[in-house]
Design a protein around this nucleic acid. Structure first.
Lengths: 120, 120
DNA sequence: CCCGGACGGTATAGATTTGATACCGGTATC
DNA sequence: GATACCGGTATCAAATCTATACCGTCCGGG
C-alpha cells in the first residue's frame, strides 16, 4: 500500500503513534470501550489494577489523539462518559487481535518460561 | 473460542503476557525479524533509536518467553543470530496489523492533536 | 439542615523503568 | 602490533509509574 511512514525510523511520526498505542493501558481502554461507552469509575472497575491517575492520564492522552471522546452529561446526577471515536473504533480490530493472541497463547509462553527456568 | 483467560483481570497471566507484548520495543523487534533472522548490530541499526541496553533486555525477555531464538554461529568470524520462533511468528500477524494501523493513521492523529491544541 | 456516599478526579512521594554514556573482551584485518 | 567491529555490561541520571491520601461537587435520606 506504500504509505510514506515507517515506524523503524526514529524521527518518523508513526513512531510516536505506535508509542502511544503501546502505552501501558491504551490497549485495555480500547478493549473495554469495545461495545459501549463507559464512565470513569466504570472503566476503573473494569480494568482491574489501574489507578485513578493512570486512567486519567491514559484517557487524556487518548482524547488528545482523537481516539476517544469525553462527554459531560448534564443529567441528574451529572456524569462523564467516555466513548470510542471512529478513529478509536478503527483501532479496535488490530488491538482486539493482540488481546486475543495474548489470551490464547498464555500456555505457550508459560511453558517457554518454565523450560527456560529449568535450563539454568 | 471461550478460553479461560481474561486480560481485564489484574491477576490473570494473560495480563503479564500483554504487558510484555506492549513493552516499548517488542513490536519493533518482531516486525524487524519479519522476513529473516538478524544479528544484534543489524537489529540495532534497523530499529533506529534503540540503545544496546534496551535491545539486549528486549531480546532476553523475548527469548525467555519463547518468541525468538538466539543462536551463536561458530563461523569465522563468529556471530549471533536472532530469529522468530513459531510462537513469535504467530505474533507477527496481529503486530503487523498494529504497525500498519500506526503508519496509515498518522495524519488522522496529527490533525486530532492540532485540533485539540487549537481548542486551548 | 446535616450526614454520608458516589463520582471524577489531584497531589505528593516513593519505587521502578528508561535512557545516555562509557567501557570491555574476543576476533579479525591492516 | 594497531585498529576496528561485534555483542554486549556497568553506571548513573532522568523520566515514568504506583500507591496512598485527599478534594470538591452533587445527591438522597433523616
Amino acid at each position: 500500500m506504500g504509505n510514506a511512514y515507517n515506524v523503524m525510523a526514529a524521527t518518523c511520526p508513526s513512531r510516536t503513534v505506535l508509542h502511544r498505542i503501546g502505552a501501558r493501558w491504551t490497549v485495555f481502554v480500547v478493549n473495554a470501550l469495545d461495545n459501549r461507552p463507559m464512565r470513569f469509575t466504570e472503566l476503573k472497575a473494569h480494568i482491574r489494577g489501574i489507578t485513578s491517575k493512570a486512567l486519567t492520564e491514559t484517557l487524556r492522552a487518548m482524547e488528545y489523539d482523537g481516539l476517544i471522546s469525553r462527554t459531560e452529561i448534564p443529567a441528574h446526577p451529572p456524569h462523564v462518559e467516555y466513548a470510542l471515536t471512529d478513529l478509536g473504533r478503527s483501532l479496535l480490530t488490530p488491538l482486539r487481535a493482540v488481546r486475543e493472541w495474548a489470551e490464547s497463547h498464555v500456555p505457550d509462553i508459560e511453558s517457554a518460561r518454565a523450560q527456560a527456568d529449568a535450563q539454568r
